[in-house]
Nucleic acid binder design. Sequence first.
DNA 1: CCGTTCATGTAAGGCGTTACATGATTCC
DNA 2: GGAATCATGTAACGCCTTACATGAACGG
Lengths: 185, 185
Amino acid sequence: MNTQHVILGLLKKRSFTGYEMKNLFETVFSFFFDASFGTIYPALSKMEQLGYITKESIVQDKRPNKNVYTITPAGIKQFAEYMNSPVEKETVRSDFLMRMFFGEFAQEEASINWIKEAIASDSEDLEKLEAMKRSALAIPIGFSTKLIGLEIGIETTRARLKVLQESLLKLIDLTNPNMRQGDQQ
Amino acid sequence: MNTQHVILGLLKKRSFTGYEMKNLFETVFSFFFDASFGTIYPALSKMEQLGYITKESIVQDKRPNKNVYTITPAGIKQFAEYMNSPVEKETVRSDFLMRMFFGEFAQEEASINWIKEAIASDSEDLEKLEAMKRSALAIPIGFSTKLIGLEIGIETTRARLKVLQESLLKLIDLTNPNMRQGDQQ
DNA sequence: CCGTTCATGTAAGGCGTTACATGATTCC
DNA sequence: GGAATCATGTAACGCCTTACATGAACGG
């Protein structure tokens, strides 16, 4: 799976500009995919050359002109090939977990701060995902596989948060052995 | 965080060969990092050139010769710089979740099979992670941030599995509306 | 005998990031 | 007045994947 496949999937639904695609990547896809403008625009040019998509330039006033892309039969075929290929293994790259692994080489305070940051960031993510779920359920169409990504996002983020919060308490206890419940510095 | 930083972190603990590093990436790091030989060996050459590590060639009989790498003061400094840099955002790339998102463009049977495959793969991962946790706890040193990665791996995989199993039942229900509990085909 | 482990590397190509470049409009 | 939104692109560079290349020893 690469950016081209994802773009084709989006364009199967309707036509989009590169800018709109980036917005989707930052919201609905944020949990399992990302691509920057530096990836999207060159991909669109290449796909147009390859005949998978066509470009229509739309002149706007009060706004910059925009290019709207539409999938072609060749693009539809290409997307079908992707959907028939074996599913690739999920990859995760976590600088945070790497630092937890190398925790012995960091100052205790640094580790504690990294965990606090992770909790803050995961909490934000969780809120966003829950908001997305609410809006998805507001239009009731019954169950769709589209909800699976959202559900997995929500449940795994909750699980992470729980582990992080418990770990933070344990670490603080180790760093400050004299501090007990109710104590204040 | 890139492969060089991870290698430096490993070598802070003790010296390793490229081959041994790859084993670590496949086991203890598998949940949040990966690097293939095609990444590791060129990285080691470059790091030697840059003076971050030194190479010692060891001749073995009954086994291929090997190169054991050791960190230098320059490498230690480089690693410290990494540990002082801001933590990068975690990235996930999931072909499986993308296909769930594009589920409407796949045959229902294909979606069901992908979910079954995901359940099988996650179950295997969970067993491996739990085995790793057991061996980590067998040497009791109390709490260490190293356990956080393991815990997060275990708890998020459990959360994923739960969502997947529930989703599978819902999908099968939709596909086969006449099948009820207790029915057999 | 066959698969796995041990062990290292190269080469080509694809993919992606980051920074640079531009600029009007609209909301606070 | 300043930040965000709308909107597209290039260029350089770095990183990583995949396939290729080699080959002995050992366990089942």
